[in-house]
Amino acid sequence: MAGALALGQCSTSSKNSGSAETDVAQNAIGSAIEAQSTQRVPITPLSKGDVLIGMSHLRQVAKTEGLAGEMIYSQNCYDALSRHFTWPKLDQCGAFDLGAAQSLGDSTATAFDKEIAWFQSESAAGRYIKAATAAGEEAEKADVRLNDLETRVTAGHPAGSKGASSTADVPTSADTRHLEEAG
C-alpha cells in the first residue's frame, strides 16, 4: 500500500500523468479503507480541533519542506488512514489538503506539475470523499462534511499568507502561484 501512495514523489511529469497518479492513489486509499470494514469506526462529528491540527501541520511542513514536502506529508497522512482509519485523522488530512489547495489557488506554474495536480481542489476533495464513503459515510453526508471542513479551513486560512519564509529554496503551495510571474 505504501508504494501505491508514494508514486513518483520527486519527478516533474506532465499534468496528465500527475492526474492519473492522483486517481490511482485515491482508488488505493478507498480500497484500503474499505478493507477495514470488519472494524468499522463509528462516524464522529467534524471537530474544530482536528481542523486546527491539520492547518498547523500544513504551516509547519510548508515552512520547512515546501510543496514537495507537502505532497509527501499528504500521501503519508492518507497512507496512515489506509492502515488504521479514524475520523479525526481523516479530518486532519482533509484540512491539510484543503489548506494547501487554497494556497495554490488556480496555479498554472509548470515546475511542480505533479504536486499541483495532487492539491487541485477537486483532487483534494475527491480523496477526502473517497475515504469518508469507504469508511461508511453516505455520499450526501460526506459532501456536507466536506463543505463544513472547507468552511472551517477557509476561516482559519489567512488570506494571502505564505507558508514558507522568503528564503526557502523550494516553493510551497502558497508560493507556486507566483512562479510564472517571477520567471
Score class of each variant (00 low, 15 high):
Met1Tyr: 13
Ser82Val: 07
Asn16Glu: 14
Gln120Asn: 14
Glu180Gly: 11
Ala168Trp: 06
Gly8Tyr: 13
Asp113Phe: 13
Ser47Cys: 04
Glu21Tyr: 08
Ala95Leu: 04
Ser19Gln: 15
Asp91His: 06
Arg152Lys: 08
Glu138Pro: 01
Ser173Glu: 06
Phe96Leu: 02
Asn147Trp: 06
Ala80Asp: 05
Ala124Arg: 01
Ser47Tyr: 01
Ser161Tyr: 10
Asp79Glu: 12
Met55Ile: 10
Leu98Trp: 00
Ser56Ile: 13
Ser56Tyr: 11
Arg152Ser: 07
Gln9Glu: 14
Met71Gly: 08
Ile72His: 11
Leu179Thr: 06
Ala80Asn: 05
Ala25Asp: 03
Thr64Ser: 14
Gln92Glu: 09
Ala159Gly: 07
Gly156Ile: 07
Gly99Ala: 02
Glu137Ala: 09
Thr110Pro: 01
Ser123Gln: 11
Glu137Asn: 08
Ala174Glu: 09
Val144Thr: 03
Ala182Asn: 09
Ser121Glu: 12
Gln120Gly: 13
Ser37Phe: 07
Gln26Asp: 08
Gly163Arg: 01
Asp97Pro: 06
Gly156Leu: 10
Gln92Met: 09
Ala2Asn: 15
Gln36Arg: 03
Thr12Ser: 11
Ala6Gln: 15
Glu150Gln: 09
Thr172Arg: 06
Gly18Glu: 02
Tyr78Val: 07
Pro42Thr: 14
Trp87Asn: 01
Ala155His: 07
Val41Gly: 05
Gly99Asn: 00
Gln92Thr: 05
Arg145Thr: 00
Gln92His: 04
Gly66Pro: 03
Gly163Val: 07
Ser121Gln: 14
Val61Trp: 05
Gly30Met: 05
Val51His: 00
Leu98Lys: 02
Thr86Ala: 03
Leu90Lys: 01
Gly3Asp: 13
Ile53Val: 12
Glu138Ile: 00
Ala100Leu: 02
Val153Tyr: 02
Thr110Met: 07
Gly30Ile: 03
Ile72Gln: 10
Gly49Cys: 04
Ser123Trp: 02
Pro158Glu: 10
Ala135Ser: 09
Gly163Asp: 03
Ser103Lys: 14
Ala134Arg: 00
Ala135Glu: 00
Thr44Asn: 02
Val24Arg: 15
Arg145Tyr: 00
Gln9Trp: 13
Asp23Arg: 11
Pro42Lys: 14
Thr38Val: 10
Gln39Arg: 06
Gln36Ser: 03
Cys77Gln: 04
Ser37Cys: 10
Phe112Pro: 01
Asp50Ser: 06
Gln120Ala: 15
Met71Ser: 08
His57Gly: 08
His57Cys: 14
Gly3Cys: 09
Thr64Leu: 13
Lys63Arg: 14
Glu21Pro: 10
Arg59Thr: 11
Ile29Tyr: 03
Gly183Val: 12
Asp143Arg: 00
Lys89Arg: 12
Lys48Pro: 04
Ser14Val: 09
Gly8Asp: 15
Ser173Pro: 09
Ala101Ser: 12
His178Leu: 14
Leu90Met: 08
Ala155Asn: 04
Ser13Cys: 10
Ser14Trp: 11
